[in-house]
């Protein structure tokens, strides 16, 4: 029982990342009709916003320490961060320690701007082109973006730790009456899950309870009629692209402490996220979220030794297996709308 609870918890944070990326993908597909293969790159750029802010906060000057030597036997140059020199080690150190949460504020305008530039600069020229063209151009864009990041930051993962306050793990086992260490879960992953829930709730509330959201939903349902009513739906859809980019970016920012960011991390999530969108139902926001969590949890269960001993290698194919089963039984996905990608 404890093993099952543990894998559900594991699946929740994995599912949170899938759900956030798939939510953005679905927003873009539902509003603009674009299959955006560069969406994983937005997730990656978000993570590198955290890396960048961390590097900005740790910008430092060098002083020579004659008592120590470097690898060439020269007097060692000791680095001191400007922020600690200006604000004192306590406040400066705290700023550096909290770089990842602070990066949320840093990333929002950057991601909206990146999304806006992507949409206006490239993707809008492909609205009326076939989906195959859109996939090719956005996939190419993803490769360009990741190569740019690699040129600046290198190919190796870059450690981007969570604040010290969130290090360690919470013992759920003791809380639920199990033995100590039976169900432990890292604090930061709990934060990630809560953060994902807030973002998902925020996006749904925005679409459900604002006039802007109502127009966007109307546009998703029938773009032509909304246009005839004199509403500039294109402008709103561009804003939605920026919003989707921000959602993916924020998912990346908060994911940085879970796995050290590297230039390829977007591609690692992209294919899985598309499977999530297809399983959830193309164009369905609740479907994307539900499928994200469902597949995250199933993936975790498939990694259990007990399951792998019965079905060797199941952890590598479970997501695709579930996708096949769902598409065979529900061709539009879990919560897919009629008419989407069926023409």
């Amino acid at each position: 029982m404890d093993a099952i609870i543990l894998q559900i918890l594991n699946g929740l944070d994995k599912g949170s990342a899938y759900a956030l990326i798939a939510l953005g993908l679905t927003l873009i597909f539902g509003t603009l009709g674009v299959v955006n293969f560069a969406h994983g790159a937005l997730f990656m750029i978000g993570a590198f916003c955290a890396v960048t802010l961390s590097r900005i906060l740790t910008l430092s000057f060098e002083t020579v320490d004659p008592t120590q030597t470097d690898f060439l036997g020269q007097p060692l140059k000791v680095k001191t961060t400007y922020i600690e020199a200006w604000f004192g080690p306590e406040f400066g150190g705290a700023m550096i320690d909290w770089a990842v949460p602070l990066a949320i504020l840093f990333a929002i305008p950057i991601m909206i701007a990146v999304g806006f530039i992507m949409e206006r600069g490239l993707i809008k020229h492909f609205y009326k082109r076939p989906h195959a063209d859109q996939i090719l151009v956005t996939f190419g864009l993803a490769i360009v973006l990741q190569e740019i990041i690699k040129a600046f930051y290198g190919a190796n993962p870059i450690p981007t730790p969570a604040p010290a306050a969130f290090k360690g793990s919470f013992d759920f086992g003791v809380l639920l009456g199990f033995e100590a260490n039976a169900i432990i879960y890292p604090y930061w992953r709990l934060v990630y899950f809560a953060f994902a829930a807030i973002i998902i709730g925020g996006v749904f509330a925005f679409l459900q309870f604002t006039t802007f959201g109502m127009v966007v939903r109307a546009g998703m349902a029938d773009r032509e009629t909304v246009g005839i009513l004199g509403i500039n739906i294109d402008k709103r859809f561009t804003i939605m692209f920026g919003l989707a980019a921000a959602v993916a970016g924020l998912a990346g920012v908060m994911y940085a402490p879970i796995n050290s960011p590297n230039y390829h991390m977007g591609m690692d999530f992209l294919v899985l996220s598309f499977v999530v969108v297809v399983v959830g139902g193309m164009g369905s926001l609740p479907g994307a979220v539900a499928a994200g969590f469902l597949l995250g949890i199933l993936e975790s269960f498939a990694s259990m030794n007990q399951v792998k001993s019965i079905f060797p290698g199941i952890d590598q194919i479970i997501i695709y297996l579930v996708a096949i089963i769902i598409l065979l039984t529900r061709p539009r996905g879990l919560l897919g709308r009629k008419g989407v990608m069926e023409d």
Partner: peptide
């Protein structure tokens, strides 16, 4: 573990148990 794995939490969680 799969070579392509990026998140090892589901493999690490059972270790303590």
């Amino acid at each position: 573990t799969p070579l392509a794995a990026t998140d090892f939490s589901s493999y690490i969680a059972p270790v303590l148990n």
